[in-house]
Design a protein around this nucleic acid. Structure first.
Length: 754
DNA sequence: GCGACATTGTTTTTT
DNA sequence: ACAATGTCGC
């Protein structure tokens, strides 16, 4: 049915588009648009209708080019918006593109597809659910749901959960799916762990199929198979999409690449935009090589390089360039700017993480006192755990901050519980939803009862819901358990009837109350219960909002659309407040953003680059790219810091400054000296910081020393002076380590306390 | 079915 | 250090 509707609307929109391109006003817009671009950007935007690869450096106006290109295709190449597909990775990027497009084009564009890989695949699967072998109301599992299901599958296979951790199985399954592999494609002739993992994969697929659910990776894989195995459908979309644009191409994985190739066929003009230097998602399957592969697979692909940067000072850019040239596998690209030189990059060497946090907050205070705004400032770190100390310091100083990332709205347990009820109303076969709420809030349905249901469902290859109904009908259930289960079934069936004519938000409210969820969260004491109830209210608000925002474009039932929205766009909910915050986030989360002032903290060997990344060259290069991404976020000023001692996993660890700091040209760096009169924090009591005078002569090399933990060792090198002094010691047992003299409490031969 | 203890691992994260 | 699981006893 979808196909016919599409053909109709295509013709309508074609007419609309030809009227549009003869419009004088829009031609004017086009000229104005091109005038605002630099030469390289203009070349890319006006590239002939064919394949093109755009290597767009950080801050080179990538999104602008992409958006302008779409406008160009519509205005000058006279493509129908209906024939254009633009793909991104995140909802945020898709939203931004849509928004900028609507500002650029004089008329609202109908039929243009802009979305994430997952969002677009979802749309295709909804339209062609029968050919994709899915139930009409299939639900998308998020990784949490997926984990729960895999856990159950492992248990059902009678495998030892210690030997087969859920996480491992999950990443195995997702990894294979990202490669486009089904269980039968995986070579498991030999015995061993792979064979078991494949059987878990297989059983998991089966479980998903009976429950009518699919995971994120499956969205892509299933869509690829849908197109590959249904020539008419493929032909339809190949004919439809004359131009395909892909953002962040360096982040595409195998299946996404295959998906684009398939959809593009021989005719579509594919424009891939990416930056190999900003590839930071290799660990989750992204293949940078796809960029190199592009020119081979897509005929006559023209390559454009956008190297003029409009974001950062030349100091920051030169430093970032110097850093990234240490990577070997690069396509090569040098960012430049016609802008000002700017301030030098400040590098601060802190004693420990507390001192580092203190320094950062101090600089932020200075910045704000000089008229800067907090929201122009970002603190970037390698891992989330590093935010704690920074938070505490900011809190102490009363600086408003906001942490990005972490738990998102639709990921919250109480929200997911409520949605699980909703899912069950829509599709009682959804075993993941069933398992989640059948006994939550507790209603006397125990493990024993569930075990019976599971084994029946397994034997009959049916859903838990069907198993429950059957067990009840057959009267084989124990009195007590039977009543409890029957009450649950009745509850769901009652809700199905009662909510059928309700608005979405009313449905949710009804579900929350009838299920006892609301009462349950009201009962719990503590400060958490209030925020949980708030979240439930917020969910109702979100549903109400959703009702208004939803266009009738996709004729998906509103409930299903809302559930898909909850899975696919977990909702950052971060733009709501308008206060001015300092932004705290991981380097990964910072990609695509920019800030006038950027702090890069924790620049230590073992932290960044991380311990695990230091052995393998490939991973080290990815860490370096991550550093490059971080540096190029800064517009006006970049401040780097590292701590000589850091509390990590409960231990005090001594780290050397990150190699990335040393890879920056010395001339661009302004190294800030430590104040010798630093007051030691109360938590570290044993610390004795020597004055300059005390240690100015340093320790003789070769001196034998004793360390409380590491034992006896020999001094190999001494670096720095004053409170700053570090010594390199070769210990008998523990090997070679760098220690900060002020913290190490070394005892020299002769019992002299340093 | 819940609370008290033990065990465990601990980059990065979207969809 | 610490949080987030899992196990055990009532």
């Amino acid at each position: 049915m979808g196909v016919i509707a599409i053909v109709f609307s295509w013709q309508n929109e074609d007419n609309a588009a030809s009227q549009l391109s003869s419009d004088r006003e829009s031609l004017m817009t086009m000229e104005a648009l091109l005038k605002g671009l630099n030469e390289k950007q203009r070349e890319a935007v006006t590239s002939p209708l064919g394949n093109a690869l755009i290597l767009a450096g950080a801050g080179s106006g990538k999104t602008r080019v992409l958006v302008s290109r779409i406008a160009w295709l519509i205005e000058k190449e006279q493509l129908s918006p209906h024939g254009i597909l633009a793909v991104t990775f995140t909802n945020k990027a898709a939203g931004e593109m849509r928004e900028r497009l609507s500002r650029l084009l004089p008329h609202p564009v109908m039929g243009l597809w802009v979305g994430t890989f997952h969002g677009l695949c979802h749309r295709l699967l909804r339209r062609h659910f029968k050919d994709a072998n899915l139930p009409e109301q299939f639900h998308i599992l998020d990784s949490d749901d997926q984990g729960r299901l895999i856990k159950r599958v492992i248990a059902a296979l009678n495998l030892d959960s210690d030997q087969w951790p859920v996480k491992q199985a999950q990443s195995f399954i997702n990894g294979r799916k990202d490669e486009g592999l089904r269980p039968q494609h995986i070579n498991a002739l030999h015995y061993g762990p792979t064979k078991t993992l494949v059987s878990i994969y297989s059983a998991y697929e089966q479980a998903c199929q009976t429950a009518g659910v699919i995971d994120f990776a499956e969205l892509l894989l299933r869509t690829h198979e849908l197109l590959r195995d249904n020539p008419e459908i493929l032909a339809h979309y190949q004919q439809r999409f004359q131009a395909i644009l892909v953002d962040e191409f360096q982040d595409t994985n195998t299946i996404q690449y295959a998906w684009i190739r398939l959809l593009a066929g021989d005719h579509a003009a594919v424009m891939a935009v990416g930056d190999d230097d900003q590839s930071i998602y290799g660990w989750r399957g992204a293949k940078v090589e796809n960029i190199q592969q592009f020119s081979r697979d897509f005929r006559g692909a023209l390559v454009y390089r956008l190297e003029q940067n409009y974001r950062s000072t030349s100091t920051i850019l030169t430093a970032a360039n110097a850093l990234i040239t240490n990577n070997n596998s690069r396509m090569g690209k040098d960012l430049w700017t016609s802008g000002a030189e700017g301030e030098k990059i400040m590098v601060y060497s802190a004693f420990n993480e507390l001192d580092e946090a203190r320094f950062v907050t101090e600089r932020i205070m200075m910045e704000i006192n000089q008229g800067g705004s907090a929201d122009e400032i970002a603190i970037l770190y390698r891992s989330n755990a590093q935010s704690r100390v920074l938070e505490e310091a900011l809190l102490r100083q009363g600086i408003a901050y906001r942490i990005y990332g972490g738990m998102r709205f639709f990921d919250r347990a109480e929200v997911k519980d409520t949605l699980a009820y909703l899912r069950l109303l829509v599709n009682p076969s959804d075993d993941t939803a069933f398992e989640r709420v059948v006994n939550f809030p507790t209603r006397g349905i125990g493990e024993k009862t569930l075990e019976d249901l599971r084994s029946y469902a397994k034997a009959e290859t049916c859903s838990l819901w069907a198993a429950a109904k059957h067990q009840l009908d057959s009267g084989e259930m124990a009195q007590r358990a039977g009543t409890a289960l029957a009450r649950f079934i009745q509850l769901i069936e009652m809700l199905q009837v009662k909510t059928v004519a309700m608005e979405l938000d009313e449905q949710l409210s009804e579900v929350m109350h009838s299920s006892g969820l609301h009462a349950h969260f009201s009962k719990i004491k503590g400060d958490k219960s209030e925020s949980r109830l708030d979240n439930l209210q917020e969910l109702i608000n979100a549903a109400k909002q959703f009702r208004y925002d939803q266009d009738a474009e996709d004729e998906l039932p509103l409930v299903s659309a809302f559930l898909a929205h909850a899975s696919l766009e977990a909702g950052d909910m971060q733009a709501e407040e308008h206060e001015r915050y300092v932004h705290l986030m991981t380097l990964h989360a910072a990609k695509g953003l920019e800030f006038p002032l950027v702090f890069l903290v924790g620049m230590e060997e073992g932290v960044f680059p991380g311990k695990q990344s230091m052995e393998e060259p490939g991973r080290l290069e990815e860490e370096r790219r991550l550093c490059y991404v971080g540096m190029t976020r800064a517009m006006r000023k970049l401040i780097i810091s590292y701590a000589e001692v850091r509390r990590l996993y409960g231990r005090e660890e001594y780290h050397r400054p990150s190699r990335f700091v040393r890879e920056l040209p010395a001339g661009l760096i302004d190294e800030v000296r430590v104040k010798a009169r630093y007051q030691s924090p109360t938590t570290i009591t044993r610390t004795k910081i020597p004055s300059d005078a005390e240690t100015s002569n340093g320790i003789p090399l070769g001196q034998t020393v004793v360390h409380a933990k590491f034992g006896q060792g020999v001094v190999l090198a001494v670096e720095g002076n004053g409170a700053h002094t570090r010594v390199q010691v070769k210990f008998k047992e523990q090997g070679v380590k760098w220690l900060v003299l002020a913290y190490a409490n070394l005892i020299l031969e002769g019992e002299q306390f340093l």
